[in-house]
């Protein structure tokens, strides 16, 4: 479904992604793990069209999209949930979701919005209760739910999730991971960036490890979870070990 080939992206003199290749097949949850500064968000933003790659290709459903505008990529079926629970704070929950469907063709919109809203209320019932509240007044977990909901409104074939559990209480993070799993059961393909590698590998089919802009390991989730190198670097027994 998604195929990234020899991608290079950077800012100014700094090259962040150095020859990254990966692929995501339909129906998969693929997780991308890596330390801070490894280039995970840069990769996500490049796929979503917010950044232009210097070299390489991004193929979606067989077609190159690396030079397309972000708005066009959304209408082709890739939707990004950016890092840090981003939403339109002064707008209500309902308005945020409605805007999420912005890229849908006019004719389908009204119907599609209704259908999608039902689905999102089902996935996150709390959002329905809060639908008339400004998004800025929601709790962290609710904001992340809304951020995911907003991205789902454009009916994506591929959902890009950039650190959805960041800064959330463990219980709330767990709820988000459950929702991600349910999304996949409903047929959405997902590329997930996570610091919480253990939780991410538990729901993913495959994974890639990104280190200073290069893919250094890839494999099925079970393989990655059992690889000594990766356990040492990303799944450490406790935080103390990781820090030292």
């Amino acid at each position: 479904m998604l195929r990234v080939q020899n991608l290079r992206t950077g800012y100014g003199n700094l090259e962040v992604l150095r020859n990254v290749s990966l692929h995501v097949d339909a129906g998969e949850i693929v997780v991308l793990i890596g330390a801070n500064g490894a280039g995970k968000s840069t990769l996500m933003n490049t796929i979503a069209g917010l950044l232009r790659p210097r070299e390489g290709k991004v193929l979606f459903l067989g077609e190159p999209i690396q030079s397309r505008r972000a708005s066009e990529i959304v209408s082709r079926g890739i939707s990004l949930v950016p890092e840090g629970r981003q939403l339109f704070a002064p707008l209500t929950v309902l308005e945020n979701l409605t805007l999420g469907a912005y890229s849908l063709p006019r004719k389908q919109r009204t119907l599609a919005v209704q259908g999608k809203l039902e689905e999102i209320w089902g996935l996150f019932p709390i959002l329905y209760e809060r639908r008339r509240q400004p998004a800025g007044t929601l709790s962290g977990g609710e904001q992340q739910m809304l951020a995911v909901g907003r991205a789902l409104m454009s009916r994506p074939k591929l959902l890009l999730l950039d650190e959805p559990s960041m800064g959330l209480a463990p219980l709330v993070a767990k709820e988000i991971f459950l929702a991600i799993r349910r999304l996949r059961e409903n047929g959405t393909t997902i590329l997930l960036v996570e610091q919480n590698a253990r939780a991410a590998l538990a729901i993913a089919t495959r994974g890639y490890v990104l280190e200073v802009g290069m893919i250094v390991a890839e494999g099925k989730s079970e393989e990655l979870s059992s690889s000594k190198e990766i356990v040492r670097a990303y799944l450490g027994k406790d935080y103390k070990e990781v820090w030292e």
Binding site: A48, L50, R69, A70, S71, V74, S75, L80, P82, Q86, L87, F88, A89, P90, L91, E95, T98, L99, G100, Y102, S103, R150, S154
Partner: peptide, 20 residues
């Protein structure tokens, strides 16, 4: 008008959201 408020509040997300 809604897209104007969206762009004003968070330009990057507006872009990611498919707003030109």
């Amino acid at each position: 008008g809604l897209t104007i408020i969206a762009v004003r509040d968070n330009r990057e997300l507006a872009e990611a959201n498919g707003i030109a």
